[in-house]
Structure formats: structure tokens, C-alpha cells
Amino acid sequence: MKLQQLSLFLENRPGRLGAPLESIAAAGINLMTLSLADTAQFGILRLIVREWELARQVLEHAGWVVNLTEVVAVDVLDRPGGLAEALKVLESAGLNIEYLYAFSLRRGDKAILIFRFDDPDQAIVVLKAAGLHVVDAEELFSHIAVGEGAAEAMNANEGE
């Protein structure tokens, strides 16, 4: 049920974001979504791609420090209050969100929330018990056809 997220360390200066994205584009890997967390001094680029093993290899070979993290995707209705409902569930269960980001699919009326929890397995249990739909990798990536950029980053919120 969990997704693999790749994170990269970037210095916070002009032009640093392009290089890793070019590396994975050159390998023919499509981005499902991304999020960028930044401080005055550095940034952390987080990526969700279907071919994460390949992407990791490509990035590491190009000299980047890559971190692999398990995250949880939940889909909610793409309408006002969709996110708030999901958050209420997590809050009442006392689950701490390290950070989250969200994006909407080009087709359909769903938005996808990507959550980073300290304990993703426990979070999945809670989410499911509350009747929320946890999206696994297979389902998520079925939304994009090969070679089509189907998803766009909509938001990148820091939940820290």
C-alpha cells in the first residue's frame, strides 16, 4: 500500500533544480508528482515516479545523494473540504504528519494526497478504518498512460 518516494539534496541557488530532473528525463522516466521543501540554505526535492529503482540508479550515478522513503497516498474528492476531512481522521487518531503534498489527476474528480508519516503502516490502518481510500502504486500509476505526463503538482505544503 505504500509508495516509494525519492528525495534529493539540493543547494538553494539558481539552476540546481533543473539538473536532476534532466537526468531522469533523459532516462525516459516520467514524474508522477514532486514537492520541493526549501530553507534559505538548501532544498529537498521529493519525487514520485513509477520506475523509482531506475530513477534512483540514474540519480545516484549522476552523483546525487538520494534518500528512499515510504509514503502513503490517499485520494479524496477534488472539492472544497476534501483534504480537511482526511486530516480530521488523522488528527483524531493522534497521528503526526511529517509533511504532505497534493496533486490532482488530469482525468477524474479526485485529488491525491501524499503523506509522510513516521509510522506509515499504522497510518494506513487508521485511514482505512475511517473509510478513506489508500491508493497503492499500481492503482496510482494506472492513471497515467506510458509517455504521457498526466499529473501536475498542485501544491507543496510543509507539514513540519
Binding site: Q5, A37, T39, F42, I44, R46, V65, N67, E98, E160
Partner: peptide, 9 residues
């Protein structure tokens, strides 16, 4: 390296 800003800070 960590994916968390707080951990890197």
C-alpha cells in the same frame, strides 16, 4: 541525508 527538513537542519 534525510527527506525531512528538520532532520537536516
Amino acid at each position: 541525508f534525510s527527506d525531512k527538513v528538520g532532520a537536516l537542519e
